[in-house]
Design a protein around this nucleic acid. Sequence first.
DNA 1: TAGTCAATCAGGGATTTTCCCCTTAAGCAT
DNA 2: ATGCTTAAGGGGAAAATCCCTGATTGACTA
Lengths: 212, 212
Amino acid sequence: MTYSVAVVDDHILLSQAIGGLVEGFEQFTVLYTCKNGQELLDKFKNPKNIPDIVLMDVNMPILNGIETTAHLYEHYPQVKVLALSIEEDDSTILQMLRAGAKGYLMKDVRKSELYNALLEVIEKGFHHTNTVTKVLVDSLSEKESPQAILKERELEFIKHACTEMTYKEIADVMFLSPKTIEGYRNAIFEKLNLRNRTGLVIYAIKNKIFVP
Amino acid sequence: MTYSVAVVDDHILLSQAIGGLVEGFEQFTVLYTCKNGQELLDKFKNPKNIPDIVLMDVNMPILNGIETTAHLYEHYPQVKVLALSIEEDDSTILQMLRAGAKGYLMKDVRKSELYNALLEVIEKGFHHTNTVTKVLVDSLSEKESPQAILKERELEFIKHACTEMTYKEIADVMFLSPKTIEGYRNAIFEKLNLRNRTGLVIYAIKNKIFVP
DNA sequence: TAGTCAATCAGGGATTTTCCCCTTAAGCAT
DNA sequence: ATGCTTAAGGGGAAAATCCCTGATTGACTA
């Protein structure tokens, strides 16, 4: 019995190279490779193109790994998604797992670990490295994910705060009084334990609220 | 005649996968793969380990692609470095080329393009994609690369400015008067055309002066 | 159905930090 | 000497920060 694998990565060379590795594994065969989530979903329209496992990158244009995984989890629950990314920050990993990924591999694993992961996902239904397990454990004790405590309007303000605009200018573009903006800022500083706007900018970038 | 290739990438899976691709090319064979520049230089101590071409990632821990390439260019000029990276910002590409890389491939190229690039580097001594050529042309007309106009102490200040410290606190840790810090800040604002500290933080992150 | 409660928006006033001029002094090189 | 760089400062305006108060609204609740 051989299992089919689809590789999704916007870096064509990498998807081809990884596909090559997978072809080298006896029980696995590469069905096709795609450049992004949208392309993958398009392929799925033909039932012949539904693989057993999807090896999915996280950062992709158009439809990223998290959104794509969530969509697959809902509409094709039999397809097992194994994330494969250079991103190793906790929130990304958690987001992928929440979206329904059966495992998360950093791109610095060895070929043999990829093989094990594929096998385990088929046999046990999941594969979690030590790093991932740690993230999962941490997520239990830790406070709710940072983004969750911020409201929509606050997030909008934060994005503006990551520009050269003064608070007064931000107030203008958000159609609010500068004093209300101050209110947002104070609430955010309090919640996130920040001292000043610089801290807010760094926080926003670290947590991908604002992408420079 | 076959040519030997060394693959340097901190993501083991990728270096193995890319190595697999290269092994598939008739005229080329993989001598070994390394996790970073330091490891590569250690290998070079044995003359048997000096390849014809090095496929080099840019972002690596310990000794990065730019430093490593510069070192090879000085000490082993016969070795041809072909950069292979996901980074596609102009300054990174320029830095690699200045360090002596014979070409710069984005990781989203096709397998066949990698093959062409390897062949061309052997035959013509270089391989430049359209993107890279454009960067080179732009670099002629454009002002000197942003980093170049900033002095060592200014860069140090910028890194501190990307924290929650006030300018007074930065002055303390840099053993300078707050007024001197102001002088730095004004000079930088002038040079980089910035309005305020937030702009500076964003600039620093975009240009990798400060990594969040 | 009025009353409490929480969330949102806004303001007054004080203090600190940032920003922007413009000047000076020491060290160093041509 | 004359310029150049680096470090430092004075003074003032603008922005950001901090603390405290009030008005409006919608929602639940006794």
